[in-house]
Design a protein around this nucleic acid. Structure first.
Length: 465
RNA sequence: GCUCCCAUCGUCUAGAGGCCUAGGACGGAGCCCUCUCAAGGCUUAAACCGGGGUUCGAAUCCCCGUGGGAGCGCCA
């Protein structure tokens, strides 16, 4: 049997970290078992669903590389099918029309709450045979009155619910539109979903869905309810925690693979390993290894993992992401080879691509010196080392890090000063700051012309001090 | 209120009854390396929610508390 898993977000809010983690586990499970991953947009709430939210889901999934084999399907385009099943339920007696008004239902709930009971529909219309004038009825599913429903969950084990705890849920509103739990059931059946992997906030919905699936004579999927992700403060993830949309992580300079790596470790582990590529995850991930407790989101650890992935990434790949980050701060670069060279030099010293861009500007233009750095390093004391090193570099034909390295060392040796006395002035001269990759590779990337020009300018500056 | 779920360092986790003097990672502290910043290496502080059982033996199994979470919508 081919595994068929799905991700079924509703576009009522922007796709966030929690949603992505659910999508990831579902996707990984399908990939691991050579199965099919389905994307389904649950947009039956016409009021709250937005085009923008749908676009974030689509763009986010694409950015992350969580590609769907089937879909995206939209529930709003399946209304005829839902209507068909509702009729079927009505005809078979699995559903009935309920003429209770919203006001009556609210009053009932209030009464039950006051009596410290669980609020639930009391079944008033269960055996009603005649319509009630002036009321557009809803359709309710006739839930079994007794017995139990066992949810066989690969993460939680067997979870038992008493049917007596469940009531007859509304599957069609008074305007005829179908509701969430019902649509999920019809879709999962029609799309032949074998594995339902979703947040454990849905665990309580599952027995109702199972009852409907049974009424339809469908084979039950395997369930896996994932623990929730909480904000860094341990409370429920919300707008307060920033990161409204996953795309924000792209804009902040996170690598998709790093974000996914971070997310997979929330609730899942593989021995002591922390760093995984996506390819490795598709080999190693198993839903049975997922734990049951909620976990808090740690921005620090994500940052660390992002750096780990940046360090390991191919410069050419980094260059692709670095380019728009530089453009965002007004530096437009067309030279992809140079971009890759910069990324290579910088990849061990940036936690995000955005940070890399911010700290790489001098590779493309130098506007002036950092005041403190210049004051400390471009002094009269620096004139001699700069002069000597400039002279040697000007004569260098083989412009590569190794050769540059030798020249800098030789200069320090000749002048009988520490390496720092030579390297730091050069660093400030070419980068305008006191921080850069090793001076030899910095100069290599900068190129001969730029280096010479900047050294001369710095020499002028230092001479005036 | 009722039902369901969950519970190991600050955080993410390892742990399937003896391997636990509870391991790793992030973050913290310190040291080393060093041309800056990083990266890397080493050291260090830091946890089994509480109480009862079961057992020769419990972080691991059972029960009861406690704490946290979810659901109980003509939302999804």
């Amino acid at each position: 049997m081919t595994v068929r898993s799905r991700f079924a977000p509703s576009p009522t809010g922007l796709l966030h970290i929690g949603g992505v983690r659910t999508a990831l586990f579902s996707w990984l499970y399908a990939r691991r078992h050579g199965g099919v991953f389905i994307l389904r947009i649950e947009d039956t709430d016409r009021e709250r669903s937005t085009e923008a939210a749908t676009q974030v889901i689509l763009d986010g999934m694409q950015w992350l590389g969580l590609t769907a084999d089937e879909g995206p399907f939209y529930q709003t385009r399946r209304m005829d099918r839902y209507a068909e099943v509702i009729e079927q339920f009505l005809a078979s007696g699995h559903a009935y029309r309920c003429y209770c008004t919203k006001e009556e239902l609210e009053a009932m709930r209030a009464r039950q709450m006051a009596a410290k009971q669980k609020p639930r529909y009391d079944g008033t219309c269960r055996n009603r045979t005649t319509p009630r004038a002036g009321v557009d009825p809803v359709v309710r599913f006739r839930n079994p009155l007794d017995g139990t429903v066992v949810v066989e969950d690969v993460i939680h084990g067997n979870v038992v619910f008493d049917n007596a705890e469940l009531d007859d849920l509304i599957i069609a509103r008074s305007d005829g539109s179908p509701t969430y739990n019902f649509c999920v059931v019809v879709d999962d059946m029609d799309m032949r979903v074998t594995h339902v992997i979703r947040g454990d906030d849905h665990l309580n919905n599952t027995p109702r869905q199972i009852n409907m699936l049974r009424a339809l004579g469908a084979t039950l999927p395997v369930y896996g309810h994932l623990p929730m992700i909480l904000g860094a403060d341990g409370t429920k993830l919300s707008k307060r925690h920033g990161a409204v949309s996953v795309l924000q992580y792209r804009d902040e300079g996170y690598l998709p693979e790093a974000l996914l790596n971070y997310l997979v470790r929330l609730g899942w582990s593989h021995g002591d390993r922390e760093v995984f590529t996506l390819a490795e995850l598709t080999q190693l991930f198993d839903i049975g290894d997922v734990n049951k407790s909620a976990s808090a989101f740690s921005p620090d650890k994500l940052l660390w993992l992002n750096q780990q992935h940046i360090m390991r990434a191919a410069p050419e790949l980094l260059a692709r992401y670095l380019k728009p980050q530089l453009a965002a701060i007004g530096i437009v670069v067309d030279d992809d080879a140079k971009l890759a060279a910069v990324a290579h030099a910088m990849r061990e010293r940036a936690k995000t691509l955005k940070e890399m861009a911010l700290n790489s500007t001098y590779f493309f233009k130098l506007d002036g010196y950092d005041e403190k750095a210049a004051k400390k390093n471009l002094t009269s004391e620096a004139v001699r080392p700069l002069t000597v090193v400039l002279e040697k570099l000007a004569a260098l034909t083989d412009w590569r890090a190794a050769a540059i390295h030798d020249i800098v060392n030789l200069t320090a040796a000749e002048l009988q000063v520490g390496l720092g006395k030579v390297a730091q002035p050069i660093r400030v001269a070419v980068s305008g700051t006191a921080v850069s990759p090793p001076i030899d590779s910095t100069l290599e990337v900068l190129g001969r012309e730029t280096t010479i020009t900047r050294l001369q300018r710095a020499l002028d500056y230092a001479s005036r001090q």
